[in-house]
Design a protein around this nucleic acid. Structure first.
Lengths: 335, 335
DNA sequence: ATATCCGATGTAATCCTTTACATTCGATTG
DNA sequence: CAATCGAATGTAAAGGATTACATCGGATAT
């Protein structure tokens, strides 16, 4: 691997010229450019990123942290982010925080240390070590949130209208005729879980059915939904709305274990529209989030900030969609 | 963010001493060390990674590429890898190649450019751009494969005994009394799919049932299994062995669509033991791979190479396990 | 008392690239 | 023809850390 010095020598020019050929080719004469590029190609020269980033104070990298990489929801977001990053000349580092604040802080330190130019976090916790940076630079800090919008964070964010989406789900169940509806939420600290709950309660209240909602707290995992579903079935609910598709999977499993059948005995509606949701038994009715687009827009937002665009958007709200498959149906008429 | 120079000035020592305190503290006197560390703490100094890596030619980073980040199987492997990397003082960059050779090459270039110290790839394709490096350094090249062992790659690898695991699955079905067994494989280029197929055929042949196997080609995705399952059901198989849990999910979905019931009418057995497998309907019998351990050992192997351990192991074979849940049962006696 | 050694610390070169500023030279203008 | 300009290129200073080598002073050996 040659250095720029050797390339310059071979091409009979100075290192400055080589550097210019590579980063601002229009400043170099046609003739010289061709000669340099020829040498670059032959020698297989590529600029040393450490040296470059030392000099420019830019790493051309974006850090993307997810609270749980085994959650398929995030996979699609990551994809969208990587594509957008590639388009903008950045590469993405993915970090799995496992909901561990210590790990979150470790990753956040990479930003303080300037190992990466910006941070996108998909969880709801803003790492503590970023507080000073955020206080200093406000929304000009290269930090963006995806999915888990919370106004107190003071960070730009990309998300759907969770309250409205949730209301759509409840409305769908009400329209089908359900009057005893179970809701399995995310953890209480999750801001979007609160938004969704508020939306659900809103929709029920508007229909004069505030009391028909039976609320249970889950943690987005299939396992947590199993227990809560058993509980809800004991309450004779005819439908269950889960705040994630994974929980819907757990709910379906518990329904089957109880000797019941979905949607004949109990309807189930999920949230996320994972790629696998169509293969659930029965295929899952759910709220689709534009996952890839969320990833893409978070990166675009971050890149705007990095480029110093004067007034980057603060909040981007994308459209959700109710996808009706076979896990929801009118309640059994017998009841 | 202060530099080492300012820290040195504040502590009244030279930059060399500060550097030594941080990397080889035993070379510095107790007294000086304390003073320097105090300044470091107060000033919040952290070494600039670009400068360090420029000087040392090491990045303290490992690149881990996965062919499909939305596949939950890889999530667990990534976790194990990240833990092991953290233990060894490295951090992990995750790259999603989406099975795209061009993207694979792009990531591989990060190794050539020394942006990362080593590469772990979980797919079966060795990026073309690494051929020269591999030719030059042989197995001393900092490249390790996980899961997809293939002897022709000439790269150390961590994996299970896929043929034996597959044989176990078939044997389980045979033991239950199945005599018409469908097999849905991975893509034909996948070496582990070939191994598994060989193992399956072996087991069937040993039982004198070579002709009872009905083989269909899938691509590890749920969707591909749906079509193949329909086809197999038309052949009146009483059991289906899928080379991934995702395909098992597709198979279950297709079985339900056909108005049949698992395991009453058709048994299904998967491969991987995803976290969700226990929530399938019915809970899935499958071959468990030690996913976290695969990740961990690939990193350990790579770190051995990076540290110049003279004879790092070439192949690590970990243990699999047949996990019997409820998706397999004896065939309906009526047949 | 002198020579020797060793632990602790300092000096300065080095890693490779980018870029502000300087230089050169041919073309244009008055 | 001298002065001015501008495009193309070169010179050299940064950027921050590591580390080979040099230095210093006190302890030990002779």
């Amino acid at each position: 691997m040659p250095t720029i010095i050797e390339v310059a020598a071979l091409a009979g020019v100075s290192t400055a010229t080589v550097s210019r050929v590579l980063s601002r080719p229009e400043q170099v004469s046609e003739e010289t450019r061709r000669r340099v590029l020829e040498v670059v190609r032959e020698s297989g020269y590529t600029p040393n990123v450490a040296a470059r980033s030392l000099r420019t104070l830019r790493a051309a990298k974006i850090l993307l942290t997810v609270p749980d990489i085994s959650n398929a929801f995030f996979a699609s977001v990551i994809r969208g982010a990587e594509e957008a990053a590639r388009d903008a000349g950045y590469s993405v580092m993915v970090g799995d925080t496992r909901h561990d604040p210590e790990v979150e802080d470790q990753y956040a330190d990479m930003l303080s240390r300037r190992e990466v130019d910006g941070l996108i976090f998909l969880g709801h916790r803003l790492p503590a070590s970023l507080a000073p940076l955020l206080a200093r630079k406000g929304t000009a800090a290269p930090i963006v949130n995806g999915c888990e919008y919370s106004p107190d964070l003071g960070v730009p964010s990309v998300h759907i209208d969770n309250a409205a989406a949730s209301a759509d789900a409840i409305q769908h169940l009400i329209d089908l005729g359900h009057r005893r509806i179970g809701v399995i939420t995310g953890p209480e600290i999750s801001p979007i879980s609160r938004d969704r709950l508020a939306g659900a309660i809103d929709a029920a209240t508007r229909a004069g059915l505030r009391d028909s909602l039976h609320i249970r707290v889950g943690d987005y995992s299939a396992g947590s939904a199993v227990d809560q579903t058993r509980d809800l079935l004991a309450q004779d609910v005819t439908a269950i709305f889960c705040f994630s598709d994974e929980m819907a999977m757990g709910a379906l499993s518990a329904i089957g274990d109880a000797g019941l059948k979905c949607p004949r005995d109990v309807s189930v509606i999920g949230f996320d529209d994972l790629p696998l949701a169509r293969y659930f038994q029965p295929p899952l009715t759910t709220i689709a989030q534009p996952k890839g687009m969320i990833g893409r827009r978070t990166v675009e937002l971050l890149v705007d900030i990095l480029r110093g665009v004067e007034s980057p958007s603060q909040q981007v709200t994308l459209r959700h969609e109710l996808v009706i498959r076979s896990s929801t149906a009118p309640p059994a008429s017998g009841l």
